[in-house]
């Protein structure tokens, strides 16, 4: 049998490698000279727990540096699971600068609850983003009144953010359709000014969510929330019902 798989055009090999964990994709470089650099143009770079379990994670920062340095072409998706990351955050800042120049559309950053990542303002240079998920990060820099003009989905978990910053961020994402806001700190009055919002999941303790804003958002159909005195189970109810209940309580 002849070697058929190696005779596939590079763009098809690229599609196949994209479905592999990054580690397996990089390992394919040793198959033959044809395969040596095939991995380096895949547009999705995922550094997750599956590909990088403990204890191989100690050099994760260096590995990401190396992969970004050797990569060529656009990077549409970048995911970094830094739950054990104890290296310098300036390294992460540098990745964001690099990624913002490569047409990044999807960004997922997770860190550790005991060591939050202070998001740099360079994050806002990634204006091609359509999907952004941040966990264990903090928006503590002065509010910059910036958002993401193309962003459709925003997932914020265990985030420190002020009321002012939250309101400014959301109102500067005009195309936002889905917002997940879970276990947040520093924010208690949620002002969501997002005319295209279709899904909203809020999970956490907050004093006030401005219902007047929502009466104009007719397409909003889901709300999951946990009020201070409810149990731990997450409630998912139709928004109209939730707001009716909220108004009755208020």
């Amino acid at each position: 049998m002849e070697d058929r798989i190696s005779s596939l055009p590079s763009n098809i090999i690229g599609i196949i490698l994209m479905d592999l964990p990054l580690k397996d994709a990089v390992r394919s470089s040793i198959l033959s000279s044809k395969w040596r650099y095939e991995w380096s143009t895949i547009p999705q770079l995922v550094f997750d727990r599956h590909s990088f379990p403990l204890p191989s994670r100690h050099a994760l920062g260096e590995i990401v540096d190396q992969v970004l340095f050797l990569h060529s072409g656009p990077i549409e998706k970048f995911a970094f699971d830094g739950y054990t990351y104890d290296d310098s955050f300036t390294r992460v800042d540098r990745w964001l600068v690099y990624l913002s120049r490569n047409g990044l559309k999807e960004l997922i950053l997770n860190f550790c609850p005991t060591r939050l990542y202070q998001l740099p303002t360079t994050l806002f240079n990634c204006q091609a983003l359509t999907f952004l998920e941040l966990q264990d990060c903090e928006f503590i820099l002065p509010c910059v009144s910036k958002g993401f003009i193309n962003l459709a989905t925003l997932v914020l978990k265990d985030i420190t953010i002020s009321d002012e910053y939250f309101e400014s961020l959301i109102s500067n994402c005009p195309l936002l359709r889905k917002l997940v806001f879970s276990d947040f700190y520093g924010c208690s009055h949620l002002k969501v000014n997002a005319p295209n919002l279709k899904e909203l999941f809020v999970n956490g303790f907050f004093e006030d969510i401005d219902p007047r804003k929502y009466t104009i958002i007719r397409l909003l159909y889901l709300l999951a929330w946990r009020m201070a005195d409810s149990d731990d189970s997450m409630a998912i109810v139709p928004a109209e019902k939730a707001f009716a209940a909220w108004r009755a309580d208020a």
Partner: peptide, 21 residues
């Protein structure tokens, strides 16, 4: 295709697809 390559050693992959190293 990716499923055939996943978790395989380079030698196993070369054998399966007859890749000349």
């Amino acid at each position: 295709f990716a499923g055939m390559l996943k978790m395989k050693s380079p030698e196993e992959i070369r054998q399966k697809f007859n890749i000349n190293n």
